[in-house]
């Protein structure tokens, strides 16, 4: 079974005229790490919200096409039901804290309480999630006392405790300092290793190029491209979509350094280093 199937998805927010999503189709395999890139207002966040059912259930609006997540059709399900299959982490760590709980431990319990889990199961899942995200030592702290990076990891832990097989992250590091971002990237990698399917919107191209198996390029509500990072970042028309490739790719493009087998440009520091060393040996 595919983790995610999106077929010809169209969506318009209420009282707007423009389609926020227009004919988007793609499929994601179980366990893949997918990056979503594109300029602001390209439809990246709307796509994320459509995967978890906030579009259309939370916003209403005009909806067409089909989204199937972990075998469940989004349109005929509810956001709460979908929470068992797919979770989402947003940009702002602060507004993801429920504010109704006094400790990190209870905060993670919030979703499990809503879904009616028994206490023993809750404790097992909270312990697992807090340990996986490296937050177990903070379990008795007030959530608002955490640093930005820790708060964002708490938001991830709260989702992971509900054991979704897919997790969507919508620019989770955009409001964090470098140390906090690094914490979150490392946490996301550990989720990926656990076999969880990851779909992540990110502006830091160097990072997404390093971690993603495949990349979705969005522009004005359309899916422009869906392929390996090397393919997407090698596109000559990339900048016309308001996206800059990783700085390593930019350097390789201006030096004409390509992988001769694939004809594609390198996207990570390691790749460009290897190719440049190869070049200098040849010359």
């Amino acid at each position: 079974m595919k983790a995610v199937v999106v077929e010809n998805l169209k969506y318009r927010y209420p009282s707007t005229e423009r389609l926020a999503l227009s004919g988007v189709s793609f499929e994601v395999e179980q366990g893949e790490f997918i990056g979503i890139i594109g300029k602001n207002l390209a439809g990246k966040s709307t796509l994320c919200e459509a995967l978890v059912g906030l579009v259309p259930h939370f916003y209403k609006g005009a909806y067409g096409g089909r989204v199937v997540v972990d075998g469940v059709e989004v349109l005929s399900s509810s956001v709460s039901e979908l929470a068992r299959h797919i979770g989402i982490v947003f940009q702002n760590p602060f507004t993801q804290i429920t504010a109704a709980k006094l400790t990190v431990y209870e905060e993670v319990a919030f979703g499990l309480e809503n879904l009616g889990f028994q206490r023993e199961e809750m404790v097992k899942r909270i312990d697992y999630a807090l340990k996986l995200l490296g937050l177990y030592a903070y379990k008795d702290r007030n959530p608002f006392e955490l640093s930005g990076g820790q708060m964002q990891r708490l938001a991830i832990a709260s989702i992971i405790a509900m054991k979704p097989s897919i997790i969507v992250l919508d620019e989770p590091t955009s409001q964090l300092d470098p140390l906090g971002s690094e914490e979150v990237f490392r946490a996301v990698q550990s989720l990926s290793k656990e076999g969880i399917t990851i779909i992540m919107v990110e502006q830091k191209m160097e990072k997404i190029a390093q971690y993603a198996d495949k990349i979705i390029l969005m522009n004005e509500g359309h899916l422009v491209d869906f392929g390996a990072p090397e393919e997407v970042f090698s596109r000559p028309d990339l900048e016309s979509y308001g996206v800059e490739p990783p700085v390593f790719t930019t350097i390789a493009k201006s030096l004409g350094i390509k992988d001769n087998k694939t004809g594609l440009y390198p996207v990570t520091l390691e790749q460009v280093r290897r190719l440049m060393i190869g070049e200098s040996h040849r010359s």
Partner: peptide, 9 residues
């Protein structure tokens, strides 16, 4: 954020 954690379950 509350909805995706089953608030309306």
């Amino acid at each position: 954020a509350l909805e995706v954690r089953g608030f309306s379950a």
